[in-house]
């Protein structure tokens, strides 16, 4: 379990990175925290000819609330930094994001793994990807060709596939608005494993009644998905249980060794309801 040979390039800054990526083309891979990539390289499931290390790009390690109340997270910010960030940095109403960190692997993974790395990897069960889809985050990608902004709904394409081009890096992720009544929960056989199913909700509520909201699921398709049918139940003033039922009915998760379709649907019912209750208890 030793990686295949590659050439190592340590990027100095964003500009240098994009220049390297433009030059090296498809054979290059960006490494940030490397918590998924290095494991795949050790199995030789990934074998990039060039590795562009962006670990020195301190300018991408930041976290803060913008003028509109949006949360801006630099791509190189680690899960751990988010997890321990004080309320004045993370901003009111973004507790869902801080709390979701506890579900990502374990502490020694979170200290190295980065927000941008997780998004760019695009695992359908990844907490960050689910959060992005739930809150329709905006991705800021940069290349020599310039900067572009991509909404979450257009960012994730399929299994481990995103809208990022080979010459682009993710520089920032913007969560557009606070989500004071939002929560993410999931289930796996062991703590720290990739979720069999994960569920996240963002409820529109005055703290007493719910009059709408967003529901997103991970582990049920090639990428995290929003579930309109479940959101419709919330908008119509339905119960959390009915919302969860609607979510389970609306998707058709493929079964595998970690859980059949039937079981995943059962988990959806449990987890969506649980997420709604947790969201309202905030």
């Amino acid at each position: 379990m030793k990686p295949a040979p590659f050439r190592y390039h340590r990027a100095r800054d964003v500009e240098d990175t994009t220049a390297l990526l433009a030059e090296l083309g498809d054979d290059a891979k960006v490494i940030a925290g490397g918590q998924s990539l290095v494991a795949m390289m050790n199995f030789r499931l990934a074998r990039p000819a060039h590795l562009v290390d962006i670990g020195c790009l301190r300018e991408l390690d930041h976290l803060g609330v913008g003028a509109e109340g949006e949360l801006r997270i630099g791509a190189l910010t680690t899960h751990h930094t988010v997890e321990i960030s004080p309320p004045h940095k993370l901003g009111a109403g973004f507790d869902i994001i801080r709390d979701a960190m506890a579900w990502i692997g374990h502490v020694p993974i979170r200290t190295r793994g980065t927000v941008g790395g997780s998004m760019a990897h695009g695992d359908s069960t990844a907490e960050w990807c689910l959060l992005a889809v739930l809150l329709d985050a905006e991705f800021v990608a940069q290349s020599l060709r310039g900067q572009r902004r991509i909404r979450a709904r257009e960012f994730f394409f399929g299994y481990y596939t995103t809208a990022l081009d080979a010459d682009e890096i993710l520089v920032e992720i913007v969560f557009p608005r606070p989500a004071p009544h939002a929560a993410l929960t999931e289930f796996a056989e062991r703590r720290g494993d990739f979720a069999i199913v994960s569920a996240a909700v963002d409820l529109d509520s005055d703290g007493r009644a719910v009059h709408g909201g967003r529901v997103a699921l991970g582990g049920v398709a090639a990428m995290p998905v929003r579930v309109q049918e479940a959101e419709a139940v919330l908008a119509a003033g339905g119960t959390f249980r009915d919302c969860a039922k609607a979510a389970a009915a609306a998707v058709d998760p493929p079964g595998d060794a970690n859980g059949s379709t039937q079981y995943r649907k059962h988990l959806i019912r449990t987890l969506v309801e649980r997420a709604c209750e947790e969201a309202m208890s905030r």
């Binding site: 190592y8 490494i31 490397g34 918590q35 290095v38 751990h80 993974i109 190295r112």
Partner: peptide, 19 residues
């Protein structure tokens, strides 16, 4: 393989020495 990098525990198998 857990070691500390800048005081925080990390997996030394998921990091290239160059990093």
């Amino acid at each position: 393989c857990t070691v500390l990098v800048d005081g925080l525990p990390v997996r030394a198998c998921l990091m290239f020495a160059a990093q």
